[in-house]
Design a protein around this nucleic acid. Structure first.
Length: 657
RNA sequence: GCGCCCGUAGCUCAAUCGGAUAGAGCAGCGGACUUCUAAUCCGCAGGUUGCAGGUUCGAUUCCUGCCGGGCGUGCCA
């Protein structure tokens, strides 16, 4: 049962006779108290309503309380301050909820009343390119939303909209035709294809870098010159002008620094290739590689038989490669329908948009012009090629035909927000206005230096290396802790298995616990910290719960069959009990704005309550048999709540750590 | 230039569509292990929520201006 939802229903009934206005906003003002001194829940609706009705808010609060039927689960409501209504749950009612949850596999959490169909579009890497740190947020957030929605009874289709039709295949095809090591390909095709991709990409970047070197040098020179001029300019008479000039100067200084930095990394990269015994000659021999790669890509799209056959051959290997990472992350998709899947729909999408006068010719391209946007959304280029906007529209069409979703969620980073605004607006004009579209956007992963997370050498960090590093560090933590015990309990195999779970969990949790909209600073140390809002802390809490049952040789089934019940006597027991009945509130809150950090915050607070309880309330050595049984049941419910809550985030627990 | 987002404790972050005395964790200081895992717990200190106005019973939240930062911006995804 969702206590908050129930309280809101009761308030709606009490408010009904007092106003004929929309009750929803008023009812939403019933919420958990932030401060325990104001009770467990509070209603703040008397102030705004009193204002609208021209009545003193405290008097109105009294009227609401008079008509409020909550005696079964609350102490008499208290009116405080300007008109807050404070509610405190009765212990006997709390106990009833907890004892009911004990016998329910869903821990007393109801399924949603309105079950809807969701398509969730997340992860979406470009296959054939190694996955990197940028893919983790989409994958982890999308997976958590999928699991949570599903648990609440919604129909969810998770769809990995992979990039399987882009230039990266042109690169591999070119590499295959020119640089293949046949034996390596036979023995380990995935690795060989990855090598070809990296090699060709490096060569393309080299030549693009060479081509851009002049411009970069020129830019530095130009900006430096501009900077000198600005510095030597005489002071302005007008203070306003002077201020503006100072600002412009500062801006130029930044630009010079950035341009120098760019130039340095560029020359560094060029030098690296030129001095390399293998790469240097290859670079010279393949001077037109960039345009050749584009030709291979265009041929693929045009239906060239050789390239199609190669694409068909490569794709399974590429999928195998990303599947290895998904298996490790324990992420699964219902469908993996990439860009290539929609190729034969694109032309008709464009002609349909034209027929409906939604799209029109402009500068040789076909564009959708939207009110309120300076730039149009281009659906077909001058050269006839389609763009990702076209594919996204075709995808919406397919999803509507196939699943008739109520909602489509796109878990994609915030830099694409303009694209999605235009996409959704176009889709609505096209007739898909019964679908609720949402861009579930998230910020960039940054390094300590607040720049996008890179290795020391300046290359992007591969996702696999990231997982390895997290697991390796988790192994050190687990081992260190086990060594500190009087008699270490874990075999090397145990430690390795636990480290895999703890390391991956830390990585996922660090991401999920952040408000998804802000950029976040990546830190192994922080995510594997043993205190604070981390997965490790909660897994530890879970392991301590389980250990009590081991140490006390308590059989859970027999405990439940014994007829024992939870009674809340100690303040720490009550605080824990209150937290335990609120998982459903946290789940609902997290789905309101698609923010998994609502769940992590809940789990952290609940774990803290457990840690306090653990400290203050002996379980196995409780005073009486009834108290011991009650506390054991509280522990059991805590463990199950942790396990369930974490599982909805895609995070596993361990029995020992 | 235009558009979107952000600015909260020394650091990393919260704050449940305007609620009561802005909360955590690190880092700092002080306590608690003959007792179920001290990977823990308890306490102290730390703030003009970028700045200046405005809206009202009440503002981190809404509006205006300014300062500082990020991202995007007609043929990449």
């Amino acid at each position: 049962m969702n206590t908050l939802a129930e309280l809101r229903r009761r308030f709606a009934a009490a408010l009904q006779p007092l106003t004929d206005q929309d009750l929803q906003p008023l009812v939403d003002m019933v919420r958990p108290s932030q401060d325990a001194r104001h009770g467990d829940y509070q209603a703040n609706c008397a102030m705004p309503l009193g204002k609208r009705l021209g009545q003193p808010p405290r008097q109105l609060a009294q009227q609401i309380v008079d008509g409020l039927d909550v005696a079964a689960f609350c102490h008499p409501p208290q009116i405080a301050g300007p008109g807050f209504i404070n509610l405190t749950l009765r212990d006997d009612w709390l106990e009833k909820q907890l004892n009911a949850a004990l016998t329910d596999p869903r821990l007393g959490i109801d399924q949603a009343a309105d079950r809807r169909t969701y398509v969730i579009d997340y992860s979406a890497p470009n296959v054939a390119k190694p996955m990197h740190v940028g893919h983790i947020r989409s994958t982890v957030i999308g997976d958590a939303l999928t699991r949570t929605l599903r648990f609440l009874g919604h129909r969810v289709i998770s769809d990995n909209h992979i990039g399987d039709w882009g230039t990266q295949f042109g690169m591999i095809i070119y590499g295959y035709k020119h640089f293949l090591n046949p034996q390596a390909y036979r023995e380990a095709p995935v690795q060989e294809l990855a090598r070809l991709y990296r090699l060709v990409n490096q060569l393309v970047e080299y030549h693009q870098g060479r081509a851009g070197l002049r411009a970069a040098q020129k830019r530095v020179a130009q900006l430096t010159e501009q900077l000198e001029a600005q510095r030597e300019a005489p002071p302005r008479a007008d203070p306003k002008e002077e201020k503006r000039a100072a600002k412009a100067l500062k801006k130029t200084e930044h630009q010079v620094a950035a341009a120098r930095h760019d130039l340095e990394t560029l020359t560094g990269k060029l030098k690296q290739v030129e001095t390399d015994g293998t790469l240097g000659p290859l670079a010279r021999e393949n001077a037109d590689i960039a345009s050749a790669v584009l030709r291979e890509t265009a041929n693929l799209h045009a239906g060239d038989e050789t390239n199609r056959a190669l694409w068909q051959e490569f794709l399974p290997y590429c999928l195998e490669d990303i599947d290895r990472i998904y298996r490790r992350l324990k992420v699964q998709f219902d469908d993996t329908l990439g860009e290539s899947y929609y190729q034969d729909r694109l032309a008709s999408v464009v002609s349909e948009l034209q027929a409906k006068k939604i799209a029109s010719h402009s500068d040789g391209a076909i564009c959708v012009f939207l009110e309120g946007y300076q730039t149009p959304m281009i659906v077909q280029k001058q050269d006839g090629a389609f763009l990702y906007a076209t594919t996204d529209l075709a995808t919406i069409q397919y999803r509507q035909q196939t699943w008739r979703p109520d909602v489509i969620l796109y878990v994609v980073d915030h830099r694409q927000s303009l694209h999605f605004q235009q996409l959704f607006a176009t889709a609505r004009r096209w007739g898909y206005d019964n679908i609720d579209f949402a861009h579930v956007q998230f910020g960039t992963v940054l390094g300590d230096d607040r720049r996008p997370f890179k290795t020391r050498a300046g290359t992007t960090v591969g996702l696999e290396g990231l997982l390895d590093e997290a697991v390796q560090r988790a192994l050190a933590v687990v081992s260190q802790n086990d060594d500190l015990k009087e008699t270490p309990e874990l075999s090397p195999e145990d430690r390795q298995r636990i480290a895999e779970i703890v390391g991956i969990a830390a990585l996922k949790y660090a991401d999920l616990s952040q408000n998804r909209e802000s950029d976040y600073i990546f830190s192994y140390d922080k995510m594997l910290a043993l205190n604070g809002n981390t997965a490790t802390y909660m897994q530890y809490a879970y392991a301590r719960v389980r250990n009590i049952f081991v140490k006390g040789d308590v059989d859970r089934d027999r405990l439940h069959e014994s007829g024992a019940v939870i009674t809340l006597a100690h303040p720490a027991e009550r605080a824990l009990g209150l937290a335990l009945i609120r998982l459903s509130e946290a789940l609902e809150a997290s789905l309101e704005d698609y923010r998994p950090n609502q769940i992590t915050t809940y789990l952290f607070e609940m774990s803290e309550k457990y840690s306090t309880f653990y400290q203050e309330c002996p379980v196995l050595k409780a005073q009486t048999a009834a108290q011991r049984a009650s506390r054991l049941l509280l522990c059991d419910l805590t463990g199950r709540t942790l396990k369930l809550g974490l599982s909805l985030l895609g995070i596993e627990v361990v029995e020992k750590m």
